[in-house]
Write a protein that binds this DNA or RNA. Sequence first.
DNA 1: TTGAATACCAAGCGCTTGCTTGGTAGCGTT
DNA 2: AACGCTACCAAGCAAGCGCTTGGTATTCAA
Lengths: 217, 217
Amino acid sequence: MKGVSSVQRDAVGAGMVSPRQLMASLVAEGVLTDPDSPRGRLLNAAARLFEQKGFARTTVREIAAEVGILSGSIFHHFASKEDILCSVMQEVTVYARARMASAVAGADSPRERLRACILCELEAIHGLAVPGFSILVAEWRSLSADSQRSVLRLRDEYERIWLETIGGADCPGGDPALTRRLLLGALSHSHSWFKPKGRGLSLVELADRVLLIFAPQ
Amino acid sequence: MKGVSSVQRDAVGAGMVSPRQLMASLVAEGVLTDPDSPRGRLLNAAARLFEQKGFARTTVREIAAEVGILSGSIFHHFASKEDILCSVMQEVTVYARARMASAVAGADSPRERLRACILCELEAIHGLAVPGFSILVAEWRSLSADSQRSVLRLRDEYERIWLETIGGADCPGGDPALTRRLLLGALSHSHSWFKPKGRGLSLVELADRVLLIFAPQ
DNA sequence: TTGAATACCAAGCGCTTGCTTGGTAGCGTT
DNA sequence: AACGCTACCAAGCAAGCGCTTGGTATTCAA
């Protein structure tokens, strides 16, 4: 059981399986691409670039260069550039869903579960836990309608966890779907202003502030 | 005084100057481009296209075709494609700022002022009042650092109004800057899910729900 | 030993892109 | 009548793009 005694854990993961363990089991299940395979390395490089510069401003030549191959060789692994984006989003969604399920499972009270959801998504958005997560919101329009559907299908359970958690906590308004949408907007926008370094808020503090607004005690 | 008796007003504008009047006075001041001039028509067409398909997926040929000229002729009005985006953002910011100032001036209590801000921004985001507003958030990264600065300078007063209004209402947390950031995220994300038609929420109802969360009575 | 599969290279095709250049038509001023 | 200004056209350039094609090295099972 290597990796269990890993020193650094992210805040949500305390008491849960390690990120590495989680990913390894998902790879073993066959629902996630092995990050050490050629395809996996391409997906990671693409995710990083899409997050940094956006989909349209990233070229296949850059993605290829990032893993040390020529641009044409990419198309032995993906049908098109959009296929790369779609695959990145699918992988990110699968991993984020597993992480979210694990996060709420480790929380006891309804309010603690909501806190775990918020923190889990914040960590995903800021690349601490799920590299490429912010692409899901930022580059949604770059995806064809068909690809959008394929990602949405994977995202369903992720959102179901959210809705049940919000429904369990007593949030004002009594409309979990609306609360979720406002929360998603508020949290994902933090990607463009939150700086973890410095004397400002930490991610955990931010999560608590958000919790205080959306589920006042 | 043509246009004053305009039948349709947006919700925030009740009792205020009409959108046409406001824009006309800003044009007269020289801070806004006349929408009937060649440059103004190009800016409007570009704003519409950037909003629909995004900056990167819009070509200068499409913008030109929208106003019935050839692509090369665009560059007698703008230095580059990015200059078009920057100009759109500047114009949008100037107009939105004037509208926001007018909105809070028409509200009496601190809480009403916050409500007016929220509704005003919602109407802007959904293109009912300020076409192209959503570009400010969606395409921010498409702008060079210099252009970002030039837009930020114009945006300062807009954000100042927000911060003072939030500071005046008693929002939980006691951190107007954080509240503003969460609000901006929540409101601008509504662009991707809110459908005004149908039996769902209206924009005014949405504003009230948001107000209830961010400034509970 | 052969054959199939995987992963990649080398070269470049066809197309689109933002943008340039040189010239012209119309209009108002002097 | 001559000038200058604005607005635009016609044509196309250079660069960059996603992607294709034909071939090669390596691996591994039969």
